[in-house]
Amino acid sequence: MEDKKFIRPCTLIYFLLLGLTVTTWFIGTQGLSGLQISLLVLGFALIKGQLIGDYFMGLKQVSGFWRWPVTLWLILVGSLVTYAFMISI
């Protein structure tokens, strides 16, 4: 019997990732634009990245130094992209 405590959350996360992906795609197909829409879509992407890091990569179970690189990368990339989109207006 596979570890259900490990698989169940990952299965839920999988469907959540699919939901956020389809939402992002839908926004894209509607041709919606603007800073607020872009930041909303970026927010979805950062949440998806954190979920992959926490649950698929297993970093949620890690403490200390290795808990944070993926999160810090997402914050850094998210901040830079946000700033670049803000100055583009």
Binding site: T21, T24, W25, I27, G28, I37, S38, V41, L42, F44, A45, L46, K48, G49, I52, G53, F56, M57, V70, V77, V81, F85
Partner: peptide, 14 residues
């Protein structure tokens, strides 16, 4: 997979 999660919205949607 993680990298694509940023690449997809950045290049295709935003």
């Amino acid at each position: 997979d993680l990298v694509w999660m940023i690449l997809f919205p950045l290049v295709y949607v935003m």
